[in-house]
Write a protein that binds this DNA or RNA. Structure first.
Length: 565
RNA sequence: CGGGGCGUGGCGCAGUUUGGCUAGCGCGCCUGCCUUGGGAGCAGGAGGCCGGAGGUUCGAAUCCUCUCGCCCCGACCA
C-alpha cells in the first residue's frame, strides 16, 4: 500500500472526546471515527487490526473443535419471552418493530437464538459435544457509553456456545475454551489474567473473566501474590471472622446532632470506623431489608442480590427509610427494626459496636448481635479489599484494575430447559443440553492491546496484530536514488508476502516519522542519504526504537528473520 | 435518570460575563516558491446556516425560552 493513497487520516491534536490513551490513539492514528455515542466506524487500518485479531481467534476456536456460523443480528421477541429475558434485559436492549408490529431486538447476545437452532437439528447424544461460534456485532444500549470502543453500544464480539450431554463433558468444553483463551490473548500480545467472576444475568454457576490489568480498567479485582487466586471483587469471598472475647457493655444512647456519615461519626466519637455498624436499607424486589456492614467496609450488592435471590436491588429512598427506621436518613440501626436484617460476617463478630438509634440525631454504643438484635442471616455481604486474607493460602490479597476482554461461563441448563432444547441419551432418555458460553470482546481487545503497547509517540503494535508489518520511509521521495531503492524494496518485500506500506508522500521526513510512530508499524525501513552512501538502509524497531543499519543485499533476509523468526 | 461541562471551518481553541459594524487564532487543506533525518519557511487561497427552533432588540455567536447532540462523575449493566 502506498501511503499517498492510504485512507489513514492522522490527527496532530488529541480530540476532546477521548480520555483514555487507547481511545486517543485510535482516533489520532486514523483507526476509527465516532459516528454517534458508543458507535464507531472502523477505518482501513483499524479494520485490518480487527481482522488480525479475528484470524487468531478463528484459528484457536477451530483448533478447539468449534465451528463457525453466523447468527442474525435481528432476533424475534418470542424467543426472549421463552426465557423471560425480554423483560429481564430492560432498557439495555435495543428493541424494534417491523411493519406488521412484530417485536424484535438487536441481539445483545445470542444464547436464545442458538439454542433454538440447536434444538431443531440436534437430537442425539451421538452428535455431541457440539461447539459453535460466530464473530458478530452486538448491541447493548449502555446507560453511559465510555472509553471509546471499550464500553460501546455497538461492538464486535466472538461468542461461542457449547452443547454437551453431561457435566463431565461440559467441563471438557469449558476447559478447552479456557485454554484457547489463554492462547488467543497471548498471541495478541496481551497479558490477560483469568479471574473468578460473578455470573450475573447470563446465569450459570462457574465463570472466569479474562482481565487485562491496567489503570484504565473498569473492573476491580483482588489477587493473591502468593498463590494463583484471583477474583473480581464482586465475586471474591471474604472469610468468616472469629469473635473477639470481650465483655459486653451496657447499651448507651449518644446524642449525635447532624452526624450522618460514618466518617463524621468516627470523627465525632473518636471511634475507629471498624467499630461502627453501617445499616443500609435496600429494596429487594420492592421489599425493604436491612444490611449490616462494618463501617470501613463496602457493601457488595452482587453478593446481596445473589443471597436474597432477587432480581432487583436498589438503595431505599429517603421516604422508605423514614418509614422503616422512624428516623431521617443517617440514623438507621439494627435495634428495633422489624424488617429482615442480614449481617455481614465482620459485623457479626463485632463486640460493642456503634450503630444508629433509629432516632433523629442519636446513635447507640455497645450494640451486640443476639443480645440487642436478631439476624435473619449471617453471611458474606461485603466487598473484598486489599489486605484481606486469601481464602486459599492465607496470604494478603492485593487489588488491581482490569479490563474484561473475555469471559467463559458454565450455563448448565439455564437456557436449554426453558427453550426445551433436548436430546436423547444412551438410554433413550430425553435430557436438556448442558451448555456453556464463551465471549471475547474483539473491538475491546484492540483497545486493550493499545493500552498495553504504546509510548508517548503512539502505538507499538505487536507483530501479530499490526495493520501492516513494515513501513518504508524514503527521507526524500523526490530524490531519484532514494525513490528507486525504496520502490525496489517495496516490490521485493511484497513479493515475499510481507505487509508493507511505502510512504511515497512528498512530506518532510519529520512528518513521515511522526505518522509511522503514531500508527505503530513494528518495523520502519528508512531510506536516506546517510546510509545509502554505504549501500545500507536503516531498520528501526518501533517497540524499542532500536536502529540497525542493514546493507541493501541483506534487508529482505533481515526482515524475514524478524517477522517469521 | 441525577449532578457537572461543552457545542464557533476537518482538529484544537478564543470571542459570550458588559449585544454593535467584514467572526478570530493555531494546526490541517489547496496553489506557487523554497526546503528534505523528527510534525520547516515565505507568499497567495478555499472553507463557518456560530448545534437547531422560537423570542427580545434598530441590531444576537453574545440576552431569554424550548430543543437536539456530545463529554465527564454517579446510579446502572457484563
Amino acid at each position: 500500500m502506498r501511503a499517498s493513497k492510504l485512507y489513514a487520516p492522522t490527527l496532530r491534536e488529541v480530540p476532546a472526546e477521548a480520555e483514555l490513551i487507547s481511545h486517543q490513539y485510535m482516533l489520532r492514528a486514523g483507526l476509527m471515527r465516532r459516528s454517534s455515542s458508543g458507535m464507531y466506524t472502523y477505518l482501513p487500518l483499524g479494520l485490518r487490526v480487527l481482522q488480525k485479531i479475528e484470524t487468531i481467534i478463528r484459528e484457536e476456536m477451530n483448533a478447539a473443535d468449534a465451528q463457525e456460523l453466523l447468527l442474525p443480528i435481528v432476533q424475534p421477541a418470542e424467543l426472549w419471552h421463552e426465557t423471560g429475558r425480554w423483560a429481564d434485559y430492560g432498557d439495555e436492549m435495543f428493541r424494534l418493530k417491523d411493519r406488521h408490529g412484530r417485536e424484535f431486538c438487536l441481539g445483545p447476545t445470542h444464547e436464545e437464538i442458538i439454542t433454538a437452532l440447536v434444538r431443531l437439528d440436534v437430537s442425539s447424544y451421538r452428535q455431541l459435544p457440539l461447539r459453535l461460534y460466530q464473530i458478530q456485532n452486538k448491541y447493548r444500549d449502555e446507560i453511559r457509553p465510555r472509553f471509546g470502543v471499550i464500553r460501546a453500544r455497538e461492538f464486535i464480539m466472538k461468542d461461542c456456545y457449547s452443547f454437551d450431554k453431561d457435566d463431565q463433558q461440559a467441563n471438557l468444553s469449558y476447559q478447552a475454551m479456557y485454554n484457547a483463551y489463554d492462547r488467543i490473548f497471548k498471541r495478541c500480545g496481551l497479558d490477560a489474567k483469568p479471574v473468578e467472576a460473578d455470573s450475573g444475568a447470563i446465569g450459570g454457576d462457574s465463570t472466569h473473566e479474562f482481565m487485562v490489568l491496567g489503570e484504565a480498567g473498569e473492573a476491580l479485582i483482588v489477587y493473591c501474590p502468593q498463590c494463583d487466586y484471583a477474583a473480581n471483587v464482586e465475586r471474591a469471598e471474604c472469610k468468616e471472622v472469629e469473635k473477639v472475647e470481650e465483655e459486653l457493655l451496657q447499651l448507651e444512647e449518644i446524642a449525635t446532632p447532624e452526624v450522618k456519615t460514618i466518617e463524621q461519626l468516627s470523627e465525632f466519637l473518636k471511634v475507629e470506623e471498624s467499630k461502627i455498624i453501617k445499616t443500609i436499607i435496600y429494596l429487594a424486589d420492592q421489599k425493604p431489608v436491612a444490611v449490616l456492614i462494618r463501617g470501613d467496609h463496602q457493601a457488595n450488592e452482587v453478593k446481596i442480590k445473589k443471597y436474597l435471590n432477587c432480581t432487583q436491588l436498589e438503595l431505599a429512598d429517603p421516604v422508605t427509610i423514614e418509614e422503616v427506621t422512624k428516623a431521617p436518613v443517617g440514623f438507621a440501626g439494627p435495634i428495633g427494626l422489624d424488617i429482615p436484617i442480614y449481617v455481614d460476617y465482620a459485623v457479626a463478630s463485632m463486640v460493642n459496636g456503634v450503630a444508629g438509634a433509629n432516632k433523629v440525631d442519636t446513635h447507640i454504643a455497645n450494640v451486640n448481635i443476639d443480645r440487642d438484635y436478631q439476624a435473619a442471616a449471617i453471611v458474606d455481604l461485603r466487598q473484598a479489599e486489599a489486605g484481606d486474607q486469601c481464602l486459599r493460602c492465607g496470604g494478603n490479597l492485593e487489588t488491581a484494575r482490569g479490563t474484561e476482554v473475555g469471559q467463559v461461563f458454565k450455563l448448565g441448563t439455564k437456557y436449554s430447559e426453558p427453550l426445551k432444547a433436548t436430546f436423547l441419551d444412551e438410554n433413550g432418555k430425553e435430557k436438556p443440553f448442558i451448555m456453556g458460553c464463551y465471549g471475547i470482546g474483539v473491538s475491546r481487545t484492540m483497545a486493550a492491546i493499545i493500552e498495553q503497547h504504546h509510548d508517548q509517540d503512539g502505538i507499538c503494535w505487536p507483530l501479530s496484530v499490526a495493520p501492516y508489518q513494515v513501513i518504508i520511509v524514503p527521507v526524500n521521495y523526490k530524490d531519484e536514488e532514494q525513490r528507486k531503492v525504496a520502490e525496489q524494496l517495496y516490490q521485493s518485500l511484497r513479493d515475499l508476502g510481507f505487509e508493507v506500506v511505502l510512504d511515497d508522500r512528498l512530506e518532510r521526513p519529520g512528518v513521515k516519522f511522526k505518522d509511522a510512530d503514531l500508527i505503530g508499524f513494528p518495523l520502519r525501513i528508512t531510506v536516506g542519504p546517510r546510509q545509502l552512501q554505504e549501500g545500507k538502509v536503516e531498520v528501526t524497531i518501533r517497540s524499542t526504537k532500536e536502529q540497525i543499519p542493514v546493507s541493501l543485499s541483506e534487508v529482505e533476509d533481515w526482515v524475514s528473520k524478524f517477522i517469521r523468526g
